[in-house]
Write a protein that binds this DNA or RNA. Structure first.
Lengths: 96, 96
DNA sequence: TTTGTATATCGATCATTGCCGATACACTTA
DNA sequence: TAAGTGTATCGGCAATGATCGATATACAAA
């Protein structure tokens, strides 16, 4: 758990939004055709108005910070919150 | 309380360190000659190895984010943690 | 194998940030 | 008033970050 890395990852509203949306996938990604158990399909996040490549970059930053995990399934990549790291981070900065 | 602004303020280790040091001024600023009740004198923070102007810039960013408050006393400016805003922020991101 | 779809990476551009020295400003003291 | 000390701001430069279109890669389906 790299605290500095996580703070930098959270320093962009789009990424904070993505994390928040992932808390309730069915509410924020109603167009997804895959079951939500696997996570949210990468393409779904383009709803934030950014290009595919930019979204991919934001997702990569969240992943490198350990805030999300990914799973490839066929041609799709699914993203999920990494609750363990998130909880660890929140505990760590509780004494901020 | 501007969450995005606070996240950006915390996206630099020096600023996170400053906030942490301010939790125990007497422990981290033993050379300060002023009473700690007023806060920590701006010049004290140059111990992080950065120039005076850079330190001043970091402090200004923390202040604009509402994480610290300042009080001028004569020729000196003293910095204190803004516990209210910090607590509000922590509560806000508790459900991150 | 070829085509199509989904995602990641590349290259370029522009904006932002971090850093410093120099300077301006605020205040004190002689 | 003049000189000294502490802090903030300015100007410039290098590094990083955000963004995009184009391209490469991974996989599926025809």
């Amino acid at each position: 758990m790299d605290r500095d890395e996580i703070f930098k990852a959270l320093a962009h509203p789009a990424r904070v939004n993505i994390l928040a949306w992932l808390k309730e996938p069915q509410a924020h990604f109603p167009t997804q055709e895959h079951p939500f158990e696997m996570g949210v399909c990468a393409g779904q996040f383009e709803r934030c108005g950014l290009s595919q490549s930019t979204v991919s970059s934001h997702l990569a930053i969240l992943q490198r910070a350990g805030l999300v995990t990914t799973k490839r399934l066929g041609q799709w990549v699914f993203y999920k919150r990494n609750e363990e790291t998130i909880a660890e981070f929140l505990k760590d900065i509780g004494s901020l």
